[in-house]
Nucleic acid binder design. Structure first.
Lengths: 187, 187
DNA sequence: TGGTTTTTTTGACAAGTATCAAAAACGATT
DNA sequence: AATCGTTTTTGATACTTGTCAAAAAAACCA
């Protein structure tokens, strides 16, 4: 729990009142490897903070699983689409390792927004960060070769390569597992 | 100017005080076709509302122009990356048609956020919408063939196809102009 | 209208990547 | 240490798309 506050205070300092309200809204969740936090067609009603462990989000497309994000320690996690629209999710969220999470419901978050302007600001800033990261990935995916994407990942997020099976990474990069394997053999 | 309020009120109703504050912060801009609203390496210090006309955002990559978004009537426009981080933009914003815009500076927007909680909420909700749209495009770009992407566009945003030169659309879809031309000949 | 520029289409070829199938390597378990 | 299941690598082939170059069509303008 202190984990969350320490993380938040790194880029935005909350008042004591807001901290208390936030912590009182949180519920601890412990899940083990391969369990699901969310399956597609369900409505995602919670925002999660990942204290320890690793998750992935993936789509099912033509019987194939397409991983499109990973989350690790200190990440905020949700099915953004379902959580914000209230519509059924099109993605699944699965545990890559045994993990500890803290959850807050959409209703509770709305309450927090109404009572603590600064929490809404915090979330707005978090959205900005996610948006910028997604935009960067989007541009890269479109204009770089598979090899360049892998090099990028080696430089910018080697921790993912170390903790996640190759098949998931291949679909994250938008290439086949075989192609990724061949690229790796060139290094 | 009423245009902006009419648009906003469609999905979020502001109080009269907030409306006044917002309108007092706006400045009208009129630009003609092919002019630039922003060039890369500049810092984007404004958020724009597009009342009439059309714009595109594009990157220069290996001497090629890569269009990655279009904006039309009622869209909010900025170089999201530069505006939020305060760092030099990596993209250009150019006029596709003569256009009328309303601008608000980052400083003014910060003032508005501080004085009118509901304006910050409005912007947060706008971010959510943009994020979801970008996420959808990201997933599509990765998992659909060039032909499927074009079909999608025919269904979901035919107005873009009608108003924008083919070369821009090709790079928007992440394919070469020649490939797009060949796809179109199949319909 | 004719001429000039810009945009779009067509053709030939090369490169990159996906696919299918099988082998090898790795990990966990007993 | 041997076995089973999973993950990764390798090989052969086919397909999609990019690239370069040129022709055709459309838009623009005097």
């Amino acid at each position: 729990m202190e984990y969350l506050l320490a993380h938040i205070n790194r880029y935005y300092r909350l008042t004591a009142a807001a901290q208390d309200a936030l912590l009182n809204s949180l519920e601890k969740i412990v899940l083990s490897k391969n369990e699901f936090l969310l399956k597609d067609l369900q409505i995602c009603r919670h925002l999660y903070f990942l204290e320890k462990g690793a998750l992935r989000g993936f789509y099912n497309s033509d019987g194939k699983e397409i991983t499109h994000w990973f989350a690790f320690e200190n990440d905020f996690v949700t099915s953004f689409y379902s959580f914000t629209t209230g519509l059924p999710a099109v993605e699944n969220i699965q545990l890559l390792e045994g993990s500890i999470l803290w959850s807050v419901s959409k209703e509770q978050l709305g309450e927090l927004f109404n009572n603590h302007h600064e929490i809404e600001r915090l979330v707005r800033i978090a959205y900005e960060k996610y948006y910028i990261r997604l935009e960067e990935r989007f541009v890269n995916a479109q204009f770089k070769t598979a090899k360049e994407l892998y090099e990028n990942m080696l430089l910018q997020s080697p921790h993912i390569l170390e903790r996640v099976p190759l098949g998931y990474i291949a679909s994250y990069l938008g290439i086949s597992q075989e192609t990724l394997s061949r690229i790796r053999s060139q290094f």
